[in-house]
Design a protein around this nucleic acid. Sequence first.
DNA 1: CAAGATTGATTCCTCAATCTTG
DNA 2: CAAGATTGAGGAATCAATCTTG
Lengths: 170, 170
Amino acid sequence: VIARTPTAEQLDERELRAWRGLLRAHTALVKALDCQLVDGHGLPLTSYEVLMQVADAPDGRMRMYDIADSVLLSRSGLTRLVDRLERDGLLRRESCPSDARGSFAVVTEAGREKLEAARATHLAGVRELFLSHLGPEEQELLGAIWERVLPAAGREAEGAPACDEACDGG
Amino acid sequence: VIARTPTAEQLDERELRAWRGLLRAHTALVKALDCQLVDGHGLPLTSYEVLMQVADAPDGRMRMYDIADSVLLSRSGLTRLVDRLERDGLLRRESCPSDARGSFAVVTEAGREKLEAARATHLAGVRELFLSHLGPEEQELLGAIWERVLPAAGREAEGAPACDEACDGG
DNA sequence: CAAGATTGATTCCTCAATCTTG
DNA sequence: CAAGATTGAGGAATCAATCTTG
């Protein structure tokens, strides 16, 4: 499908800076933003993202399945995370009247307050550490790039429970 | 403390696509590339990166400290990882003659062979899933962006053992 | 004491299996 | 049986504490 990519045995300087830079920048950004939230509000970044998704959804509620999808976490991973948020009183589970298999997570009043405070910190952090270093056109271009990359990478990543391919390595 | 960044209460569409796109693309890319290496060679991505760093270093050896730094892993995390690689016979530890505190990791013959095979898979993967979706100027620009972002994020992230800031939350 | 490296305890995440309902 | 969600078992990463050497 790719038009005969070059088969050099190494990435050249330019490729390397684009690729390894992505890895390093992502790690540094996530670590820094997580620290800000934990220090300031006792709320890790992943928990923040779940809380925000739920709180911003209509009626402050979402099905577990939909949250997991929007947050880039496995279903079981989300279950544990919501366990923690429920234990902290920020979220509450409710069963679904129309389909008893489904389960809702609903934001609590405490959850909304915590989110309100954390959101200010997080927005400032994302802007200071990331967005402020980009011009408007660069933001635009980045967004376009991710939309090109994501389908290919996502397709490959979702291939199968434990990937796909012909396992030779054993 | 922030230079008065815009205080909108939400990220706008453009900011959101640049930021959340980064998170999603990174996750998908790393997952897909890890799968390829595990399936094809029984070698997780992080292990691959360590093996590559060591094998490409002069004499095929590096100090633990330098590896950890170049691989974006904590010192203890690297110790465990090298434990695994040593158990698999891909790396070997050697003590440092000039400074007995230091420890070297040295690539073995099996390690070189494994790397050789895995490198082809990984390069093809990075090109297919990421680089092939970028034009040369876009690669250039991305590299430049990471070099702007990394210092700020890295500085913030390295602040202290458990971050910094005034802990109010807990 | 400072630096390099490791270990112990803990956390969080994932897969595979299970339970419940449609 | 298929879908939504949870549970058990296990892997891998981190911090804090420790050990050894300069």
